[in-house]
Design a protein around this nucleic acid. Structure first.
Lengths: 131, 131
DNA sequence: TCATTTAGTGATAAATTAGTCACCATTCAT
DNA sequence: ATGAATGGTGACTAATTTATCACTAAATGA
């Protein structure tokens, strides 16, 4: 991980949550693993946009924080499976609540972004040309 | 805001949530405002570590996304109050769920970090000196 | 005129997170 | 010996977010 220069407030639940699961792919990872996709290779394929390296990093952080465990099967080719620990399972309701909220907010967001792009068209008449 | 180079997946609830409330201070801001702290000045004082500039930016993003509204009272000195819109209120249960989870996870995290710093002490004997 | 209070912005730097690329290692099949 | 499949890491760069600093603006009272 990264040796922080700006420390976290470990007394604030929100800070802790941001630290442990507040990164681009972690909720998504927990979600996929809860759906039964366990191998790194399969996770790369099922999650749109993630790369191998980033996946490995975030899996290892989740493992470090105790939300995931992993089992290594000495087969050929090598098989590794990540699974949700008790802590990992405990956070699933939150993951799905966040997902639900995001989906419920989607129409609103769409409206806002449409307005915004209209505004940008108007603004074009008042702006200098780009370089 | 920032003109993204890597686009967001607007069909994924988790992506949307990360975009709209997934930044360092937003949950905290929503929480404080729900507690009745409404003026930028007061928010700077009540939230430990946030700066004026960052506060303004995140307030304006929350306003842009429709979670906050603001009222300007033309008094002297100028008074501005931010308030939760319907959308802002709708996300409060999520904010408090995240906070709760963070607090419940705190002891676990503490244990992990203690182990980790012990490990780091051990490792010192196997590492080169710093430059 | 000058300092004070409040809200806000622009430019820029620093911190942090995410992504790219090139590797290693194992084991099996060709 | 070579190549494929799998999991993994180190060095580095790019993208993004957050922080710092210096300002503007309005209105008031000393």
């Amino acid at each position: 991980m990264y040796q922080r220069k700006i420390p976290i407030d470990y007394d604030c639940g929100l800070s802790i949550a941001m630290e442990v699961v507040g990164s681009k792919w972690k909720f998504c990872l927990l979600d996929e693993i809860s759906k039964g996709i366990k191998r790194p290779r399969d996770l790369v394929n099922s999650i749109n946009g993630i790369t191998k390296r980033v996946l490995q990093k975030q899996l290892s952080e989740l493992e470090f924080h105790g939300l995931l465990g992993k089992t290594i099967y000495p087969e050929v080719p090598l098989r590794v499976e990540y699974y949700l620990t008790a802590s990992g399972k405990a956070i699933l309701p939150l993951v799905s609540a966040v997902d639900q909220w995001g989906l419920s907010f989607a129409p609103e967001l769409k409206t806002i972004l449409e307005k915004d792009s209209l505004q940008m068209e108007k603004d074009r008449f008042h702006q200098n040309d780009e370089l």
